[in-house]
Nucleic acid binder design. Structure first.
Lengths: 416, 416
DNA sequence: ATAAGTTTGTGCGAAGTACAAACAAACTGC
DNA sequence: GCAGTTTGTTTGTACTTCGCACAAACTTAT
């Protein structure tokens, strides 16, 4: 038959942003090789989420045949990524003892770099999250690009020289605007030396290792996911407050990036249309009312001592000691933080938020205040409890583990 | 070896919302049957996105072997879902003529229901998007549940009786708060008779057909995706303005739902912390400044004639005729609409927005104004153009096609 | 009219991966 | 020592994609 007299297959006009892709465009079939990779990644992810497990336990968790699991894990045992543990006496009457499987401590490690304006840290991270060979350095944020590259290469070389074997790759967490698809630091206002730097290509060429980069809040999220309170969760968000405000989300088992890593600019969502001028040029951004500059300016207005040194941790402490001004300011600040989380919750229903940075410094008390404000604002849904926690691990360490986790995600295909 | 002396595999405490799932929890491996289903769905999706294609063309698009495509499509031709078209003379010198493949016009159709307060429409939709057997009915929004169920069953029966064979299933688009996982209408403020109704189970039992339900803006999105300006796109959003404001997003090839369909309550994200009281109980929601109530109240304030009849279409027309008040009001209104899109863009970088409802009634002019406001507010990223279009198809028809598309998504596994 | 060249669609066997069943190994309790 | 149970391994089957060769159907040149 002829395919004529059919209604046009696009009944509305196509929008201009995405006309037909070229050959081999967005049609992706899954091959059997890909199937194998997907399943290997999911087995490894299950070990991250559930800890050491035997083949039979993994088979039960996945609802598949024991021989399927053996077929998946045996090659990884043989190549040294996984190792078999000692037999565990059974909980049952009789029964062959189970042999749990987990990551080989002698497997290659992961390289990690944290890039902050003017300073950098590098380290190695084991597959189970231990940090080794931590090295720190400083650089001139307005200095010469070649000088910076020499410093970063030297610092990384010092770190990598302490590994017995080549790591799987190097992950980089950086502030600023990052193009994570092309591995380029687009702009860092506080460290112009970094702006425009194709750091991934440079380091890949220099070290002959895979290199991945993402921006700092997303690295925090990945750190939460693999080694912190997000472990085993399918959906949650990381929110960072400090001099600036940022966030990232993990949705249905994937880090949300948006096009070229541009998603998640939460600090510049607007919560007060006619609010104060933001440094991005707009008015009333969430960052203008939920970051340290606002907090310190209000502390000065309320007459708190040494306002430039005010932090959430200090306010929690002073409120506990009876200071009403501290209590009032902390309440207003946590309410402002809550507005952005409310908008995120209304938009995406993530239900679980991990706080980092200054607000995390306020501990469980600050988190509980934020949670109470969010619950007052969000319309309740059946069976949907909102969780707001803090990541109690030191800031640099979460970001470094997160940078390492970027390598896990891309190299071991732990996330599909 | 023993797995002792290892760092605890959760270095931070887990947040309380999602402890370890039960057996068979969130570990999902992919089997070869699933692989086949995924690939069949992707081939069908490619036909939706690209129109009739031959096996060789599909193989090129997907980057796989021609025998792979033959193995996938032949069973669907044999079972009547697809059909081979007439040979198309080659563009080349020589070469066997290609046989394009597309949906069989005699394949089963899709059932669709649109549920609005007090009225309903049902129809059949062909796989290529034609609407047939459209039936309308009214019901008492405060009436008796059994009376309503009788009306909906009768209306659907009338529609389904005009199909030569049983449709694939029935999709329902409804206003209000919907639990799309369990198929329950949780609450509809303007039609209390629907609140708490497990409509999916009721209709599945009555008609012995698969039934799916989702809320109205998401059905609009699905309609855009399969049959409208979203066709072939991997990422875009649908925004609906009217008496209320709502939206939905399609991200990386999937409809975003959030837990039990709760994501996407865009109307109740806050854009003005100390703004006017919203009917949800909060202050300053996007809906309070970007829906018809605000528009009509401001029209009255500005002294426009017949303010209760003001719409975007009317303002566009009057502004074109020289009314400065209309022009000013339209500009303020499109700016308010732009704030919510700005926040969505900052959060998710969707880049492509399809407008529905009243704002779409303002046509390309209103869309262009919204776009200009958004572009003034959003910080430019390299290679990221923002597109804002309107879906020019009649409102009811997009939603009905969207309801039908819900069946496509779930029954034919066109979206993974 | 025939042959060369090209593209599409089909047939056949190989490869990769999961599944089912049976069996061996390793235990507990009687 | 044997029955019962669980874990891990072996063997063969099933499903799906891939590679290669060949048939079919055309255009162009001789």
């Amino acid at each position: 038959m002829k395919f004529e007299n059919q209604p046009p297959y696009s009944l509305g006009q196509r929008s201009p942003s995405q006309k037909d892709a070229g050959d081999g465009g967005n049609v992706t079939l899954v091959s059997q090789s890909t199937l194998g990779e997907i399943n290997r990644g999911r087995v490894l992810q299950a070990l991250y989420d559930h800890g050491p497990k035997s083949r039979a336990e993994l088979a039960r968790l996945a609802g598949v045949n024991r021989t399927t699991i053996t077929g998946i894990v045996q090659p990884m045992i043989e190549e040294g990524l996984l190792v078999e543990g000692e037999a565990v006496p059974s909980d049952f009457k009789g029964g062959k003892p189970a042999r749990p499987i987990y990551f080989n401590p002698e497997a290659p490690m992961l390289g990690a770099v944290l890039l902050l304006p003017g300073r950098t840290q590098t380290c190695l991270v084991t597959l189970s999250g231990e940090i080794k060979a931590l090295t720190k350095a400083e650089f001139d944020p307005h200095g010469d690009r070649d000088a910076f590259l020499a410093i970063i290469k030297d610092t990384l070389s010092a770190t990598l020289s302490q590994a017995q074997q080549a790591p799987f790759g190097i992950g980089i967490a950086s502030g600023g605007m990052i193009d994570s698809d092309n591995g380029v630091i687009l702009a860092v206002n506080l460290a112009p030396v970094l702006s425009g730097l194709p750091l991934v290509d440079i380091l890949q060429t220099h070290f002959s290792l895979p290199v991945v980069i993402d921006h700092h809040p997303r690295a925090l999220l990945v750190g939460d996911r693999w080694f912190g309170p997000g472990r085993g969760q399918q959906t949650f968000a990381a929110i960072y407050t400090g001099e600036v405000l940022g966030g990232a989300f993990y949705i249905d088992g994937r880090v949300y990036r948006g096009l070229a890593g541009s998603g998640g600019e939460l600090g510049h969502t607007v919560v007060q249309i006619d609010g104060e001028l933001c440094n991005c040029g707009k008015h009333g951004c969430w960052e203008t009312v939920a970051a340290l500059p606002w907090l310190r300016r209000e502390a000065a207005r309320l007459g708190l001592a040494n306002p430039v040194g005010v932090t959430s941790a200090r306010l929690v402490k002073e409120a506990a000691e009876g200071s009403e001004a501290a209590d009032v300011l902390l309440d207003r600040y946590t309410r402002n933080v809550a507005f952005g989380i409310l908008n995120l919750q209304q938009t995406l229903s993530l239900n679980s938020y991990v706080l980092h940075g200054d607000i995390a410094g306020g501990g469980a008390d600050a988190a509980e205040r934020v949670k109470q404000h969010v619950e007052r604002l969000v319309r309740k849904r059946p069976n949907q409890e909102i969780s707001i926690t803090v990541n109690g691990i030191g800031e640099g360490h979460t970001a470094l583990r997160g940078a390492a986790g970027l390598v896990l995600s891309s190299h071991l295909k732990l996330v599909i």
